[in-house]
Nucleic acid binder design. Sequence first.
RNA 1: GGCCAGUUGGUGAAGUGGCUUAACACACCGCCCUUUCACGGCGGCAUUCAUGGAUUCGAAUUCCAUACUGGUCACCA
Length: 553
Amino acid sequence: MTNKELADLIYPNINKTVEDYEKMYPKRNLKEGAVVSRFAPSPTGFVHMGSLLTTLIERKIPDETDGVFYLRIEDTDQKRSVENGIQGIVNDLKNFDIKIDEGVIGEHEQIGNYGPYIQSERKEIYECFAKSLIEKGLAYPCFCTPEELDETRNLQELNKERIGYYGSFAKCRDLSNEERARRIKNKEPYIIRLKSPGNYENKIVFNDLVRGKIIFPENDLDVVLIKSDGLPIYHFAHVIDDHLMRTTHVLRGEEWLSSVPVHVQLFNILGFELPKYAHLGLVMKIDEETGAKRKLSKRKDKEAAVSYYHEKGIPVEAVKLYLMTIGNSNFEEWLNQNPTASINDFKFSFNKMSASGSLFDLEKLINISRNYISRLSAEEVYNRALKYTEEFDKEFYNILKKYKDYSISMFNIERTIKKPRKDYTSFSDIKNYTWYMFDEFFNKEINYQFQTINDIEEIKKILTIYIDKYYNYEDDEQTWFEKVKELSNELGYAKEVKEYKENPDNYKGHVGDVSMVLRVALTSCSMTPNLYQIMKLFGKERVVDRFNLIINK
RNA sequence: GGCCAGUUGGUGAAGUGGCUUAACACACCGCCCUUUCACGGCGGCAUUCAUGGAUUCGAAUUCCAUACUGGUCACCA
């Protein structure tokens, strides 16, 4: 029985040839040096921080070279799929402003000429290539059961031999085609394996974009190509898809580095040109329980999913900025020199990429976020806070919406100066800093603590005299503060803190203590932005009203 | 265990044989500014680049060995 006959027996309905597919998916007509890259996740519903970093770069190089970035879904393992898992990924990319040129753009939507871009829809293509390998004697059906495979593995471990399906351990490798046909007709379950032409004693040289030259032993494992469910294993799908979709650059995590020999071999025997590879260091974290460094995990770490940042209201730009500081070591310095520039203006380079996995630093991300928000205009803060709260805090959303101009003025406090305030680390943080500015949230029950001056009669006296004698809404800031000083003086408090510190026995306290009474009476908080500006923002009536709440208590 | 990669302060890191008594940023700690907070300013925070050896007039930078960390060895990706 010939290999051709065997191939026909296994895949009787495959009529297309390898050449047909080559013609269907021709080399892309792009300018010299254009990069074609892709993001190829399983449809698990969410994007991991490490993947986002990879994706950022996968999007960036085509941007820099007039290339193409596409999204492919790798759903050859049913266990990894979740309902609407594709949409979740598409949404995450959309939230992070990562434009998809081609491929999957929705749960049931695809665009582009190199599709389908969902692997489960490409079954025939993989079968065609598998068939062609069988015909050439480079692949064969394997009837070993999982139990048998376990057995040989245990044996190999026991004898300290290299683990895997190779050489004499590859029991089905040298079956006759007649035997194979008989067992197939006998309905025995089987998978398709590569008949590896490699020799473990040989070395292959591989050039990685971030790691440089790496030398591996040649692959001699008869790896699985097609599983018993008829779908391909990652290695086979990767090689066929990235060739047919004409991918030029494959970026992926370091965990793939050890499968490179398999991939190189597959590209070779199929006669495909090897794409350029970049294996990125993993994003790590210190495990709280064990204290050991480990991969940031989707299951254990909430901060691993990029949707976490969307929900937290951390600006996507900040997340990207942070990721780029990990991605390219010279990025941060560049950003410091060009604080208002966009990531698009930065030129990415692989050799500025660190090969070692870096510990994820949420503190740093938050700092970047804080700085980013501080540079936004009051209108931008307002609009983005509105957008955020619309999705995650309806109550606050309605308030912001109701008091639009007021809110913008509020966001403008100490914002238009050269070194603006940096209160908010995220859009979810805003309410924590501003709630007392809204009567709807302000607590009229006065159960909060005053600071140094806490005798209620003294407080009432300060507020009463202030309203009656000193408070004038029209005052400019300097006059306003002069009056607070005069008020302090009248009641026996030092006009200057320094004076008080020099002769503490001469005074009841100092102007700061008096200001604090005004501050707390007005806001119920001891920490607020500039008090004068808050009073300006509130308007005379509300200032007096809030003071009266205490005076009349 | 085999194979592969990585190893510069608490963190991200610069550094490609002399300009390094190791840049910058985050965190931390002081001091200053200041009516609170935040901001800002100034200063501190690795005499040492995992360890040992070799090459060299000279090494964080080159070479070798060891150690440690991570990845991988599935009909998962």
